[in-house]
Simulated scan of single mutants.
Amino acid sequence: MPCLCGHPQAYENCCQPIHQNAQFAKHPEQLMRARYSAHVLNDVEFVLKTYHSSCKAYEQAESIEESVRSHWIELKVIDSQEQDDEGYVEFKAYFEDNGQSYCLHERSRFLKEDNEWRYIDGVIPEEKIVDPRLLKTIADTKIGRNEPCLCGSGKKFKKCCG
């Protein structure tokens, strides 16, 4: 059975050792997955102690606990990078609240502090806007000569790809 974080390893071999000792997270992605699993398990204390000290997480414990106590459903890691003492993990975490499904899409930043990875902050990546005409087949696409070109050049279709 896969870990709560979606990794194919069992929880006992994946996130549980990190929950017991955060130093076992050798890469930012491992800590991020363990933090997600802690959300699923409602382990607020683990989430709080894996924040970077500059975040002063214990001063915001109430709002962090509220987030942890959501009903977390699934994690998808999109990208993971690290260099020296800084790393980034982009992910989508799905949760439910009051019968509604939501997706938290974040690019989290991690820094090493006292030789352990710690979460410091994250940004929500800009969603790329896709021209709805690109979702149709060529046969079903009607493009007027004076409409913007599908390639995104900003030129009229007739002066670009038309």
Rank of each mutant, 00 (worst) to 15 (best):
G144N: 13
I129N: 14
K156V: 04
W117R: 08
R109T: 11
R33Y: 01
E82V: 05
S153V: 11
H105K: 04
D140T: 01
P148H: 05
E127C: 00
Y36S: 06
K49N: 11
I73P: 06
D114K: 08
F91R: 03
W117Y: 07
A34R: 08
S101L: 07
E86F: 00
D85G: 05
N98K: 15
E90A: 07
Q81F: 10
D121Y: 08
L111G: 01
A57R: 09
Q81S: 06
D97I: 02
H105T: 07
L104K: 10
T141R: 15
R107H: 03
E147S: 12
G154C: 04
H105V: 03
E86G: 00
I124K: 15
E74W: 00
D131H: 07
K112C: 02
E96H: 10
C149A: 11
A93K: 09
I78E: 14
D140N: 13
L134H: 13
K159P: 01
G87C: 11
R109N: 03
E62N: 14
K158I: 02
S37T: 09
Y51E: 07
W72V: 04
F157S: 06
Y88G: 00
C161P: 03
E74N: 14
S67H: 10
R69S: 11
C161T: 09
V68P: 05
V123P: 00
K76Q: 15
S153D: 09
E66Q: 15
E96W: 02
K128P: 00
A93Y: 11
G162M: 06
V89Y: 05
I78P: 04
E127P: 01
K49Y: 04
K49S: 10
K136G: 00
C103P: 06
F157H: 10
K156L: 02
Y51C: 08
K92W: 09
S37L: 01
K158C: 01
A93D: 11
V130L: 09
E82C: 06
D84L: 07
D131Q: 09
Q60L: 15
A57S: 13
V77T: 14
V40Q: 04
K112D: 03
